[in-house]
Computed example of a mutant assay.
Amino acid sequence: MELNLEQIPREQTLSKKEFIRKYFRPQKPVVIENFVDDWPAYSKWNLDYIKEVAGEKIVPLYDDRPVKHDEGFNEPHARMRMGDYIELLKNESTKYRIFLWNVLKEVPQLQKDFTYPNFGLRLMKGLPMLFFGGSDSHTFMHYDIDLANIFHFHFEGKKQCILFPQSETKFLYKIPHSLITREDIDFAKPDLKKWPALKNAKGHVTQLEHGNVLYIPEGYWHHMKYITPGFSLSLRAIARRPKNFGKAVYNLLFMRHFDNLMRRLKGQEWIDWKNEKAIERTHSLLFQELGP
C-alpha cells in the first residue's frame, strides 16, 4: 500500500488572472512547465555554470542525520568549496544538500539571469534562495517557518516533490514545537505498518524537470527528493490568509525560541520526548477521527 497522492496539475503557461483564480484563491498547487523560457537562466543555469561563477565560494552542507539537541538552528553539518561540491554531485551519490543559499548575498551576478514574475503576489525580492542536492538526497517532510507562498523553479535533472496541506497535519506524525515530521519516516517509500496514520493523509506529488515551476501554497508540507543531481530557485510571498499569517508570527517570535530554550535546558531528553509525543498525538487523533 502506498501514500494517497494525486498528481499535481500541470499547465503549459498561466496568466496572472488564471493563476489567482485557479490556484492561489483555492490554495491548490500547480506545475507551470514553460514559464521561464525567456529567462537567461533557462539556457545558462546548470551545475557547470554555477561552478564557473561560484566555484570558490565556501558553502554550508546538510545531510539527513536526525536533529540533535546541541546543534544550533540550521547549523550546517559540513562546509566545502562550491566547485568541489559540484564535482561531488556529478561523480557520486551524496546525502549532502545546500538549502537557503541567498543568491543576492553570495553571487549577485546571478540575479541578472532571472526576473521576479508577476503572479499577482508581492514577492520578497531580498530572499531568492537556491537549493542543491545529489542523487537520492532528500529533505525531511517540513513546512516553512513563515508559511509563505512559494514558487520553486527547478534547473538541471529531476526532482520528486510530495506535498500535503496543513489540513492533513493530524496524520503526518508532526513533531511538537517544530516544523517537521518524524525524521525516520521515508516519505518516498513509507512503512505504513509502522506509520498507519499516513494511510489517511491525502496529498499531492509531481516530478520537476529543468525549467518547471512548482507553486506551493501557504504552509503546505513538502518533501523533496533529488532523482538526479540538480538545483532549484525559490521565490516567496508572505502568507495572505490571516490564520497562516498568525501562525507565521507565532513561529518566528515564540516557537523557535521556546524550542531552542528547551534544548538547552533538557538536552536530548527534550528531543526524545518530542519524538514520542509525535506518535502519541497522531495515533490519538487517528483514533478520534476513525473511531473504535
Rank of each mutant, 00 (worst) to 15 (best):
P9W: 06
T13W: 10
S15D: 02
R21S: 10
R21E: 12
R25N: 12
R25Y: 11
K28S: 05
P29Q: 03
I32C: 02
E33Q: 13
D38A: 09
W39S: 08
W45N: 10
L47K: 04
Y49G: 07
I50C: 06
E56R: 09
V59L: 15
P60D: 08
L61D: 07
D63M: 02
R65Y: 00
D70L: 02
D70N: 15
D70K: 08
N74L: 14
R79V: 05
R79L: 01
M80H: 01
R81A: 12
R81C: 03
Y85H: 09
I86Y: 09
E87A: 06
E87P: 07
L88W: 02
K90D: 05
N91D: 12
N91M: 09
E92S: 12
S93E: 14
K95V: 00
I98N: 10
F99N: 08
L100W: 11
W101L: 15
W101C: 15
L104Q: 09
E106L: 01
P108V: 02
Q109M: 11
L110V: 03
F114C: 06
Y116F: 15
P117L: 11
N118F: 02
N118C: 05
L123R: 01
P128I: 07
M129P: 07
L130H: 10
D136E: 15
M141C: 14
H142N: 12
Y143S: 14
Y143G: 13
D144P: 10
D144E: 15
D146H: 07
N149E: 07
I150N: 15
H154V: 07
E156L: 14
G157V: 13
Q160P: 02
Q166C: 03
L172P: 10
L172Y: 07
L179I: 13
L179Q: 06
I180N: 13
D184C: 03
P190A: 08
W195Y: 15
A197R: 07
K199L: 05
A201F: 10
A201Q: 12
G203F: 10
H204F: 13
T206C: 15
T206Q: 01
Q207I: 10
L208N: 05
H210P: 00
G211H: 00
E218I: 06
G219P: 09
H223W: 11
M224N: 06
M224G: 05
Y226Q: 14
I227A: 00
T228M: 05
T228D: 06
F231E: 08
S232P: 04
L233H: 06
R236W: 00
K243M: 11
N244G: 06
F245A: 15
V249T: 14
N251K: 04
L252I: 11
L252K: 13
F254K: 11
F258K: 12
M262R: 14
R263N: 14
L265I: 15
Q268K: 04
E269T: 08
W270P: 02
N275H: 09
E276A: 14
K277V: 13
K277F: 09
A278Y: 11
E289M: 10
